[in-house]
Amino acid sequence: MMTFNILPVNTALRQQIIDKIDNLTKPKGSLGRLEELALKICLVQQTLTPELRSPHNVLFAADHGVIEEGVSVSPKEVTWQQLGHFSKGGAGINFLCEQHGFKLVLVDAGVDYDIPAGRGIIDKKVRKSTRNFRHEAAMTPDEFDLCLRRGAEVMDEIHATTDCNIISFGEMGSGNTSASSMWMHLFTGIPLEQCIGAGAGLDNAGIRHKYNVLSASLDGYKGDGSVESKMAWFGGYEMVMAVGAMLRAAELGMIIIVDGFIMTSCILAASKLCPAVLDYAIFGHQGDESGHKLMLEALGVKALLHLDLRLGEGSGAVCAYPIIESAIRMITRMDTFAQVSVTKYF
């Protein structure tokens, strides 16, 4: 399997950064989480004068075989239809990326459709949809490894052709909340029932059916119990590709803004492969999917926003960007008490 060499963030500068933040012209701690963000980003970038450059949002799309079990209200064709919609510029993530200065990168990881060439969609397709994990592994070990590699390749291309140092990830794929619920349960130990929500809009009966399908799928697992096996058995191509991209981004020293429920399950899985990836992650948004709050708590993190979004696509991460930008402006634009004639008043 592909491996990554992610170094834990060097904390040698920590006290110098804290001293600079504490001596800005404000009461100590008065800018709250902006101060926490500035500290984290300074440590990642190993500087007291951090900067954000060329933000990108990479959206991976793929279909899931488990949708055949009726676990989603979204028909499979919505995946390729929306991917085409994204390429034309009229979807939710498009206006958010435009508003906040993000470059949107679209990747076909495993859509069950032949996407026409010339639409600006990167072809990394592994297969037309994963298999139905109710009956067999969603992907083979070779496909799992290929997804990691192709996700890393996307990051390598962005890194080689732009000066991007902050990245967010989104997804599109009917059925991927089911896969995410399975990863959440397997990697946190939270009871499966608490990991399952409405997805794209299931009613109570639909949620109960979804639980029954996922519970039976769990009983049918025949893997070796490793993290890689569990990810491959229940995951999606777009999800494993996002994991590969996240791990490569951390390896390259980039800031990762984590989106909602599905991308949080991806960074959770990534952390089981390389725990240090969390040093590079900022959690943008707590979504409306019922298990998301529990997953964030299991990770010991707190999202910047809670807007009840459940769109996916990277929308919550992109919405959080201005707050991250404010943290950078705080530490780079504010004066210190030593620079101006203001008495230190705390």
Rank of each mutant, 00 (worst) to 15 (best):
C274E: 14
A317W: 13
N176P: 01
M254N: 13
A298Y: 14
L299G: 10
G235C: 08
E313G: 03
D259S: 08
K272G: 06
K272Y: 12
G206T: 14
S226M: 11
Q194V: 01
K210M: 00
A245S: 11
S265E: 06
A179V: 04
M295H: 05
D259C: 08
A198G: 05
G175W: 06
S215L: 05
E289I: 14
I207G: 00
T177S: 08
G197K: 07
H306Y: 04
G220D: 03
S178H: 10
V243M: 15
G199I: 13
A242M: 15
D203L: 02
A250M: 13
S174C: 12
A198H: 11
S265G: 11
K302S: 11
I262H: 04
G223L: 10
A281K: 15
M246S: 07
H292Q: 05
A245L: 12
E193D: 11
M239G: 04
Y211T: 00
G173P: 07
I190Q: 01
M231V: 15
T264N: 09
S229C: 02
S217I: 03
Y280V: 13
K302D: 02
H285T: 00
A270E: 06
H185T: 03
A232E: 08
R208A: 10
V240H: 12
M172Y: 06
A242E: 09
A249K: 10
K230L: 15
K302A: 05
N212Q: 13
G223Q: 10
L192E: 01
G291E: 03
T264Q: 08
K222H: 08
L309H: 06
A317E: 01
K222C: 00
S271Y: 13
G170T: 08
A242I: 14
I282C: 01
I262C: 13
M231L: 15
F169Y: 15
V258N: 09
M184E: 04
D203H: 03
I267K: 04
Y237I: 00
G316Q: 05
L311F: 12
A216T: 10
G312D: 10
H285C: 02
L192V: 08
R248K: 15
A179G: 06
H292R: 04
A198N: 07
W183D: 01
Q194H: 11
A216E: 13
M246Y: 12
K230Q: 14
A205R: 04
A250R: 15
K222P: 00
A179C: 14
D203W: 03
V240C: 14
K302W: 01
C266E: 09
A205I: 09
F283D: 03
Y221T: 02
L268N: 07
W233E: 06
S271Q: 08
D279A: 13
L268T: 15
A242P: 00
S180Q: 05
I207V: 11
I282N: 03
Y211I: 00
T188E: 02
